[in-house]
């Protein structure tokens, strides 16, 4: 199926990925090809088929409510791009 470039731009915005103006055409074409291949699925009759999210159809195990973690802020923030007073810094967030 054909997908319009502006739709790719919308998807890229949802995914927060900047795509250069020089690349958007090619990206659109490639994704059109992939989605074209994927569209074979539409022909399959799946009316009574339960979707499969996990190949073992297993169920969730639960952990006890206990504190098992210690404060490792220093180690974690040593690899952070920008921190101050123990906080991660980002450009101003506007509500």
């Amino acid at each position: 199926m054909a997908i319009e470039q502006d739709e790719i731009e919308k998807i890229a915005e949802l995914a927060r990925i900047r795509i250069g103006d020089d690349q958007i055409g090619q990206v659109t074409q490639r994704i059109t090809e992939i989605l074209g291949m994927v569209d074979q699925l539409q022909a399959v009759d799946t009316s009574d088929v339960e979707p499969m999210a996990n190949p073992l159809d297993a169920t969730q195990r639960l952990r006890a409510d206990a504190v098992t973690e210690v404060n490792r802020r220093e180690a974690f923030q040593a690899i952070a791009p920008a921190v101050e007073n123990g906080l991660y810094l980002v450009p101003k967030v506007i509500d």
Partner: peptide, 13 residues
């Protein structure tokens, strides 16, 4: 998000 002024940035806890 803590909006006190961190040089015009927001701090995340």
């Amino acid at each position: 998000s803590l909006h006190e002024d961190f040089h015009g940035q927001t701090g995340i806890d």
